[in-house]
Structure formats: C-alpha cells, structure tokens
C-alpha cells in the first residue's frame, strides 16, 4: 500500500466531495447513489447531529459491506424519531428491541447470519450514549468479551435527550442537564465522574476501537471502513452534538463537533487490539471557552461573573487528553491528510 499526499486540492480533503478527487477517494456521502440509510421525513430536531452521524456511519458501512448489512437499534432518540408508526425512515434492514439490549440482539442476529450460512451479512448495532455507557453497558461488555461479530456504534450526545435531557455517564462535568441543573453551589454535572467508553472498550482487547465526530466525515468513513475489515467485536464512538440538549444553534452542530476535537475535549483516535494506532491531530488549537460559550448548557459558566476556575478545570481535562493521546505535534499546523492509493 503506497500513500500519496493530496495537497493540491482546492479544499483539501476536508469537504464532503471534490470534483477533482478520484472516485475512490471521495466520501460515500458525496455519492449520488449513497444508501441514505436514514431517509428524509424523520422527526429529528433541526440540525440533529445523531441523524447526521447515523447516516454517515451506516452509509459508509453499507458501502463497505456492499449493502449486505443489517442494523440493530437501541431505544432512544434515533429509534423514536426514525420509526413512529406508520412511517420509517430506514432504508436498510433494521431492528429495534429494547433500550439496554442492542449489543445482545446484535449478537443474536450475527449468530443467526452465521448459522444460516450468510456470513457476508454484517451486523451494526447502534445506540445513544445512555444505551451504551449506562443501561446497555452490561450487554455491550458481554458482546465485547465474547468477541461477537458486531460493529457497535455509540452516537454520543452526552445525555438522555429523548427523555428530556437528563444526565448520563457520558455527560461532561459542569454541563447542565435536567438532573444536574445549574443551581446550587456547584451547578451542572459533577467533576470526576463519567465513563470513558472507548478506553473501556479497548480494555476488552477487541479488534478495533475508534472515536470520530460528525465534523470530519472522511475520518469517520475511513473508520467505519476499517472497522468492517475486521471480524469480531468492534466499537465506534461518534460525537453527535444535540442542539436541543446542548442549547446550541441548529446550524452549529458540525462546528461544535469540530471544536470538541480542536479543543482536545473529545480526542479522536483509533486503536487495534487495545493499542492506540493513530490519532487525529489538532489542526487549529482552540481554548475550551470557544467550545463552551456557544452552548447554553454551560451558560452558568459565563454569567456576569465568569466561573473561570471551572473553565480552567475543563481546560485541564482537554490538556490531559492532548497529552494522553499526543494530539499536538510539531507538524500539526498545516498538516494535510494522506490517503491510501
């Protein structure tokens, strides 16, 4: 496999498509004939990151599997807004059972495909962060340790948005939710809590673990593609901003996801068999204020008297991520993506 730099393109490799790119280097989303796994008419809020992330990921998986894919969905926003009787937005074979059992249901589907002599049919399970890090974690951990042939995708919007924005174990410190309200001496969610699912997944020594955001489509698709090259349990954690729950402008969804990565608050990396194999470096380092201040869930940090000490603690989290994953290198500035040719 040789690599060649894509350095000439007008918009580099960051935009969805580019008329100057070879077909093979274009994103799935730029394809007129993309699967549109989740179709128009769904009832997600304006600017929903999860609807976008789901289409990104599943369309990529559809391409990687040549359409031989079924999806299992946990209860949650994605399920509710996509399949209210009598209409479904899914164009793919799709199954919803319960909130906490998507990994196990997917295991069953995968086993059925194997026993039915259809191993080419690949199984993707998907859930929000609640269905992943909280109620679904038992089943997820079981699916991981058995190394069942399932790609599990968590669309992380950092809370229980479907039920009205309550805290989950993926809710970040200081964030206001309906159950961690911005009241009292320490408003918002507590520091020092929360589950880092990608690292927990890695601890299972499964073949592939990766994080991504809806802000970098090429990266996300490459990870889905990579994930599909493995058999066994795989985990993809996608940050999907929620305009409703985060109190952000509906047009800011991708912008916020990008800032989450550029601040270091959401490290984007991939790991194989428990070992980090690559990280997406920060391209334009950004202080966390820029990320926090455009979300109403953090509005209590930016009142008449800004809570600088809280902001500093959040910055420290970002800095720790930057150090832990080596998100900044000397070559970071001006770095362009390399694609395989």
């Amino acid at each position: 496999m040789t690599t060649r730099p894509v350095r000439f393109y007008q918009v580099g490799s960051f935009a969805v498509g580019n008329r100057l790119l070879e077909d093979g280097d274009r994103t799935v989303q730029s394809d007129l004939n993309r699967a549109n796994s989740i179709d128009s008419g769904h009832r997600a809020c304006q600017g929903c990151g999860e609807a976008l992330g789901a289409r990104y990921a599943l369309d990529a998986a559809m391409r990687a599997t040549n359409g031989q894919m079924v999806a299992v969905n946990a209860t949650g926003c994605l399920e509710v807004f996509s399949t209210p009787y009598p209409e479904t937005s899914w164009r793919i074979a799709w199954l919803h059972s319960l909130f906490g059992n998507a990994p196990a249901v997917a295991t069953g589907v995968s086993a059925a495909m194997r026993v039915k002599g259809k191993p080419e049919v690949r199984v993707v399970a998907q859930a929000g962060d609640g269905g992943t890090v909280d109620i679904g974690f038992g089943c997820l951990s079981g699916m991981f340790e058995r190394n069942d042939d399932v790609l599990f995708i968590c669309y992380d919007n950092e809370g229980y948005m479907n039920t009205g924005v309550q805290r989950s174990a993926a809710t970040p410190p200081a964030a206001r939710t309906a159950t961690t309200d911005a009241v009292g001496p320490e408003p918002g969610n507590a520091f020092g809590q929360g589950k880092d699912l990608p690292r927990l997944a890695m601890a299972h020594d499964i073949a592939y673990v990766a994080t991504a955001t809806v802000a970098d489509l090429h990266d996300l698709e490459a990870k889905v593609e990579r994930a599909m090259q493995f058999r066994g349990a795989r985990y993809l954690h996608i940050l999907v901003p929620c305009p409703l729950g985060w109190g952000s402008a509906s047009d800011d969804t991708i912008h916020i996801a990008r800032l989450a990565k550029e601040t270091g608050l959401f490290p984007v990396f991939e790991a194989e068999y428990g070992k980090v194999t690559s990280v997406s470096h920060i391209r334009r380092r950004t202080p966390v204020e820029e990320y926090l201040s455009i979300q109403r869930r953090y509005a209590h940090l930016f009142g008449k008297k800004p809570r600088t000490e809280v902001i500093a603690r959040i910055q420290a989290i970002a800095d720790r991520n930057i150090e832990r994953y080596g998100l900044i290198t000397d070559e970071t500035v001006g770095a362009t993506r390399e694609v395989t040719a």
Binding site: L95, S97, N101, T107, G108, V109, A112, M113, K116, G142
Partner: peptide
C-alpha cells in the same frame, strides 16, 4: 436479559 435479547436478535434474523 442478554439471553433473551440474543434470542430476539437470532429469531428476528430467521
């Protein structure tokens, strides 16, 4: 819970 869930997935997949 997983046992029945796996059965659900398997059964739904035929």
């Amino acid at each position: 819970f997983a046992a029945m869930s796996v059965a659900i997935g398997a059964s739904a997949a035929g």
